[in-house]
Computed example of a mutant assay.
Amino acid sequence: MTSLNFNDQNVILRTISDAPPTHYTVKIQSVSLLTKNSLEKYKSGDFETGGYKWKLAFYPNGNKNKNVTDHTSLYLVMSGSNAPQISSEVYAVFRLFLLDQNNRNYLVFEVLIFAKHRLIFLYAFHVHFLEQKEMRFHGLKLEWGFDLFVPHGVFTEASNGLLIDDTCVLGAEVFVSKESSTGKGECLSMLDGESYDSKVFTAGDQKWKIQLYPKGKSNGVGTHLALYLALAEPKSLPRGWKIYVEFSLRLLDQVHARHQFITLGHFKQASMGFVLKDTCFVEVEVTVHGITSDCSQIVKQ
């Protein structure tokens, strides 16, 4: 299902996804007690992504400060001591999730904007392209989201699966695109080099990194995008040791939420949603099943 709400140049896109949120999921039990205890909103715990801490703010009966009475409201909030000050800004794109507990899929909300520089005139018709909108977080504006998230009647109707046994499940994906002060980020930009390495991360007590070859590698040079999981410090692994790992690599479709491997032609095509503003996002899930060592080395010791 796809629904577009037009508000000036902003578009709220509602889709359904089988994939769970990448960065954070929170299960809220006894939602009705929030109202009974005169609590207007629920704030989740902090989660970290893109070098910043975030949380979700959920208003089950609507944000009264925005005069919302017939919808639930949901917002992404910057939190923690590393939230930007008034003089600095952080730009991020995000998607917020609500689980349909009956069908085990997610209702996904995101903000898009018309890409004016890609407006095409085709005979008598205008062809508009949409791209994810970067939301600007700063000291005077630490939250963005949806005042009219889901109609209250739709949310509370059990047959819709959004609130079951007085419990709902929310989630978020957040991608920091740029900062006005430090220039840090979790994205790969200027995709014209031979290869790019992600920041180092830890899984199974080992340090890893993602390697992206935007022009391909080996037999795929010039035809396919290449993406690898690699040990960040391979020389630190003792001689004769082997690591058995199960992993999945994904290239994020920033528009349609389809994650897949594609040819370079599709990768570079703006309307496909994999590259927006010369930026793409990749992610990996890593499970270390075991490590074997060289027994002869152990005996000698």
Rank of each mutant, 00 (worst) to 15 (best):
T35C: 00
T35M: 01
K36Y: 03
K36R: 13
K36T: 11
K36Q: 13
N37D: 10
N37S: 11
S38G: 00
L39Y: 12
L39S: 09
L39K: 14
E40T: 11
E40G: 08
K41Q: 09
K41E: 09
K41T: 07
K41R: 13
Y42G: 01
Y42V: 08
S44V: 14
S44W: 14
G45T: 15
G45P: 00
G45A: 11
G45R: 15
G45S: 14
D46E: 13
E48C: 07
E48G: 07
T49R: 03
G50W: 13
G51H: 07
G51K: 04
G51V: 08
G51D: 02
Y52C: 06
K53T: 15
K55C: 15
L56K: 08
A57Y: 02
A57L: 10
F58A: 03
F58Y: 14
Y59I: 11
P60R: 12
N61E: 15
G62I: 06
G62M: 03
G62D: 04
N63G: 09
K64T: 15
K64P: 00
K64M: 09
K64L: 11
N65Q: 14
K66N: 12
K66P: 02
N67T: 06
V68L: 00
V68C: 02
V68N: 02
V68E: 09
V68K: 04
T69K: 12
D70R: 07
D70S: 12
T72I: 06
T72F: 06
T72A: 12
L74F: 10
L74Y: 05
L74R: 06
Y75M: 06
L76H: 13
L76D: 05
V77R: 09
M78H: 03
M78G: 04
S79P: 09
G80H: 05
G80C: 06
S81Y: 09
S81P: 11
A83Y: 06
A83R: 13
S88H: 11
S88F: 02
E89L: 08
A92G: 04
A92F: 02
A92Q: 03
V93K: 01
V93L: 01
V93W: 01
V93S: 01
F94L: 05
F94N: 00
F94C: 00
R95K: 14
L96D: 04
L96M: 08
L99V: 04
D100Y: 04
D100C: 06
D100R: 05
Q101W: 11
Q101C: 04
N102W: 07
N102I: 15
N102R: 12
N103I: 12
N103E: 15
R104V: 04
N105M: 01
N105Y: 10
Y106S: 01
Y106P: 00
Y106L: 03
L107R: 08
L107F: 10
L107Q: 07
F109G: 01
F109A: 05
E110I: 00
V111L: 11
V111Y: 11
L112K: 09
L112Q: 14
L112C: 09
L112S: 09
L112M: 15
I113R: 07
F114M: 04
A115W: 04
A115K: 08
K116V: 08
H117A: 04
H117I: 04
R118V: 05
L119S: 02
